[in-house]
């Protein structure tokens, strides 16, 4: 048995090395290696080109609900939104309004993780901010701390139906939820559901990738075009960047 374990670990080591050797390629590369682990070699981030985002289009939010079994309760005060479309307009109404999706910003200094009493909310090594739903006690302090309103408490029992995604758990009553960058897809070398949906829609407004990899599309873009983050003044260093805001 010990031998088995060592073999597995050894293979895993080789596989991880493979990931590092071919950065950027892993996102499209087909079957993932047997063993993968989050590593600080990566820093996942998203770039949203607001100019390409259409105010009528809700492909990203729909895809998110489908992928992550995020239900609508029919009560706007309690509906869970991992990603939502916002319309913003300057108060003097001099310019036309702008439409953009907003989700968890996966901050480098996340206030939600700072205030969580049980470390249920934490930053993974690769920069994704996650909620450990097995550990969340439902105190909701994080919901007060988040400046992006990215978090929702699950107020009602949810259930599976034939449309549910079996690979993702349904939402657990009494704990706090938020966008996780579709971590199960990212770990398999795929793109988050919203990014895929945006591309399938032909908009190409969202890019997801590794900021630590200088060759990745997102790194190149962030170096060459002017991008912004929401409430950069708060010093949270969000990792959802916006172009054309």
């Amino acid at each position: 048995m010990t031998m088995d374990r060592r073999t597995v670990l050894g293979l895993g080591g080789v596989a991880t090395a493979g990931v590092v050797l071919a950065p950027g390629m892993t996102l499209i590369a087909a079957p993932p290696p047997d063993k993968t682990e989050a590593s600080s070699d990566q820093r996942w981030a998203m770039l949203i080109d607001v100019n390409k985002c259409d105010s009528n289009c809700t492909a990203c939010t729909k895809a998110c609900r489908q992928e992550n079994n995020v239900p609508l309760f029919g009560d706007p005060n309690r509906d869970i939104h991992w990603i939502r479309k916002l319309e913003i307009r300057d108060k003097e109404h001099r310019r036309p309004s702008v439409s953009l999706p907003v989700m968890c910003n996966h901050c480098e200094n996340p206030p939600c993780a700072h205030v969580c009493p049980t470390q249920a909310t934490f930053i993974r090594k690769d920069g994704i901010v996650l909620v450990d739903k097995h550990r969340c006690i439902g105190c909701r302090y994080c919901m007060l701390a988040c400046p992006y309103k990215a978090r929702s408490l699950v107020y009602h029992e949810t259930s599976r139906n034939e449309d549910s995604n079996p690979e993702v758990p349904i939402r657990a009553k009494g704990v706090v939820e938020k966008c996780n960058f579709c971590v199960h897809l990212v770990d398999d070398g795929k793109q988050p559901a919203c990014v895929q949906a945006c591309r399938n829609e032909g908009k190409h407004a969202m890019i997801f990738g590794d900021l630590n990899d200088p060759q990745s599309e997102i790194s190149v873009k962030i170096r060459t075009v002017k991008t912004q983050t929401i409430r950069a003044d708060l010093g949270l260093k969000p990792h959802v960047h916006y172009e054309g805001l």
Binding site: D34, E37, A38, K125, D126, L130, H134
Partner: peptide, 15 residues
């Protein structure tokens, strides 16, 4: 394994 997967992103697909 649950803790490792959630918190460290460890995914061993054969297991």
């Amino acid at each position: 394994r649950r803790a490792q997967t959630v918190r460290e992103g460890l995914r061993i697909r054969s297991e």
